[in-house]
Design a protein around this nucleic acid. Structure first.
Lengths: 229, 229
DNA sequence: GTCTATATAGCGATAGAC
DNA sequence: GTCTATCGCTATATAGAC
C-alpha cells in the first residue's frame, strides 16, 4: 500500500520526528528535550513539529499513543490465554507475573521499542507529565491483573493485593529504566569500581522474585516458587 | 544559641526557601519548578535564592544535602546493629530488608521529610538530574547492603544478588513516590471508580514481600518468610 | 510540506540602590 | 540581607514566502 500521497520513498518526516523525539525523551527527559534539539537531530525544520503535531504536547501524545496500547494489549492477550487454559481455576501467580512482565521485557530488547520502554519508566516517576494519560489507559489492564492476582491469592485481603501489585510495578519500572546499567552510569562510577549489574535482566529472574513476593505469607508461599516446567 | 546575627525570631529566609523548594520539587518536579514560583510561595525575593545558594543548582544541592546523608546513616547504623547481634553468622534477609526500608518509610510519614522522600523517588527515575549526586553518595551504602545480602544468600550468584537488590530499590521507590495514592491521582480517576490503594503502606508488608522475593529459589525461600516475632 | 523570520513569554542570573 | 530592574538567553509557537 502507498503512503498518504506524494511523499518520497524514504522514511516520512513525521515518523522520523517521532523516532527521534522518543529516543531523546528517553535519554534526557521530556522537559530537557527542546523541539530545536529534536528537529536538529532529525535533520528537519523546527516548524515541522507544529505542522505535523500542532504542538510539543501533541508530539508527546503521539509518541506515547503509538506504543502504549499495543504493549498492554499484548499483556491482556497473554493473561486471557492463561485464563482459558485454566478454566474456572485461578491462574498460577507466576503465569500472571509472566503475562505482565514478558511483554515489557521483550520490547526492552527490541531496538525499535526499547527507547519507549525507558521513557515509560521515566514518565511513571513523574506524576506531573503524562500521568493522566498513563493512568487512564492503564486502568483497565491494572484491574484485570489485580483481579487475577486476587483470585490466585484468596488468603490476602484486597488492600494487600493492591499493595503487592504496586510493588510489582516498582520492580518493572526499575527494570525498564535500569538506572544502574553501565550505559546509564556516569563515567566515573562505571569505570572505577565494580560491580552494580552488567548483563540484561532475565525474565525468569524477575518472575521468580515477584512470584515469591506475591505469595509471601500464604500457603502457596510455602511451596517452591516455580512448579511450571 | 543565637542565629547567625541580626535575623528576626521567625524562620530564616534560607530555611524557608529550602522547605518551599523541597515541597515544590517533589510535587511538580525540579525542571517544572521555577525560582520565581519558589520565591513567590515563600514570600521571598527572587534574588534571595542567588544570595543564599548562588544558583538554582546550588539550591537543589542544598535541598538534597541536608536530608540524604542522615537517611543513609540511619540505614547503615541499623544494619551494623544487626550484624553485631549475629556475630559471624549472616544477618537474616528480613532484618536486612527492614534496616533498609524502615528509615525511608519512617521519614515518609514525618511531615518534615515526606516531601523529600517523594523527591528522592522522582529524582531516582531521572538519570539526568541529580543522578550523579545520588549514585556517588549512595554507592557505599549500596555496597554494604549487597554484601550483607550475598552473605545471607550464599546460594545465589553475585549478579542475581545485584539484580534482586535493584528490584528492592524499585519497590522502595514506588512506595516513596506512591504514584497511585489518592492524593496523587487525577480527580476523574480518584473519584469515579475504585480502588487502587488507599491506606499507607505498612513496613511489614514491604519487608515480607521483599524478603520472600529475595529468598526465592533458595533453601531459605522454602521456609516461612517471617520467623522473627 | 518545507522553509525563514519573528512574535511572545518565561527562564536563570546579575547589578546596584537601600 | 532584601529589594527593583533588567540583561541575555532559550523556549514554544506562528505567519507567510516558496
Amino acid at each position: 500500500m502507498e503512503a498518504t500521497g506524494t511523499t518520497n520513498p524514504r522514511t516520512d518526516t513525521r515518523d522520523l520526528l517521532l523516532d527521534t523525539a522518543e529516543r531523546l525523551f528517553a535519554e534526557h527527559g521530556i522537559d530537557a528535550t527542546s523541539l530545536r534539539t529534536i528537529t536538529s537531530e532529525a535533520a528537519a525544520n523546527l516548524a515541522a513539529v507544529h505542522y505535523h503535531f500542532g504542538s510539543k504536547d501533541g508530539l508527546i501524545q503521539e509518541v506515547f499513543a503509538r506504543r502504549f496500547d499495543p504493549l498492554n494489549e499484548d499483556r491482556l492477550q497473554r493473561l486471557i490465554a492463561r485464563e482459558q487454559e485454566h478454566g474456572e481455576r485461578p491462574v498460577p501467580v507466576n503465569e500472571i507475573e509472566e503475562a505482565f512482565i514478558a511483554p515489557a521485557l521483550k520490547r526492552l530488547r527490541q531496538p525499535e521499542s526499547r527507547h519507549f520502554m525507558k521513557l515509560m519508566g521515566r514518565v511513571f516517576g513523574d506524576p506531573g507529565k503524562m500521568h493522566d494519560f498513563i493512568q487512564y489507559r492503564f486502568h483497565d489492564i491494572a484491574r484485570r491483573f489485580i483481579e487475577a492476582l486476587a483470585k490466585a491469592l484468596p488468603e490476602l485481603e484486597h488492600n494487600e493485593v493492591l499493595r503487592r501489585f504496586k510493588f510489582m510495578l516498582g520492580v518493572m519500572f526499575i527494570v525498564l529504566m535500569d538506572p544502574m546499567s553501565q550505559e546509564n552510569l556516569p563515567d566515573n562510577l562505571a569505570s572505577s569500581h565494580c560491580d552494580l549489574v552488567s548483563d540484561e535482566t532475565p525474565l525468569s529472574s524477575v518472575v521468580s522474585f515477584l512470584s515469591a513476593g506475591m505469595k509471601s505469607g500464604t500457603d502457596a508461599g510455602l511451596q517452591v516458587g516455580t512448579h511450571k516446567s
